[in-house]
Simulated assay, not measured.
Amino acid sequence: MPTDAPVRSRRFHLQRDDDVTGISGTGRVAEGCLWPDGSANVQWNGEHRSNVFWPSIVSVEAVHGHGGATRIVWDD
């Protein structure tokens, strides 16, 4: 288990301040969960919902953060 993995799952959401792609809009665009093994999943909101699984929260931020335009906000 990675050393940065939580003991329990943690909920988060993606808060998009600037929609650089013009697809998702702004605001709370996705819900997510960081799992105890360090993997994460993201469920996208909107008309075309989807679930994506990632090996780590670092990967989520690297792909969807858009240089700070989208933030990971911890709900738990």
Rank of each mutant, 00 (worst) to 15 (best):
G27P: 00
P55F: 01
S9N: 07
G67N: 09
L14G: 02
A62R: 11
W74D: 06
S50N: 13
W74V: 08
Q15G: 02
A30N: 08
V60G: 01
R8K: 10
G27H: 06
V29I: 15
G65Y: 02
A5C: 04
S39G: 10
I57M: 15
E61T: 04
G32I: 04
P55Y: 01
G68N: 03
R49C: 04
R10L: 13
D76V: 11
L34E: 15
G46S: 13
H66F: 09
P36Y: 09
G65W: 02
H66I: 00
G67I: 06
R28V: 07
P2G: 06
R49A: 11
G25R: 03
G22V: 08
A30H: 03
D75N: 10
G38D: 06
A62T: 07
S39A: 13
G22F: 08
A69P: 00
N45A: 01
G25W: 01
V42S: 11
G38I: 03
T3E: 13
H13E: 06
E47T: 12
C33N: 13
V20R: 14
D18W: 08
A30E: 04
G38T: 06
S59M: 00
A69I: 09
G22K: 09
S39T: 15
D19T: 05
H64F: 11
H64Y: 13
G27E: 05
D19F: 05
S24A: 11
V29E: 04
A69K: 03
I72S: 02
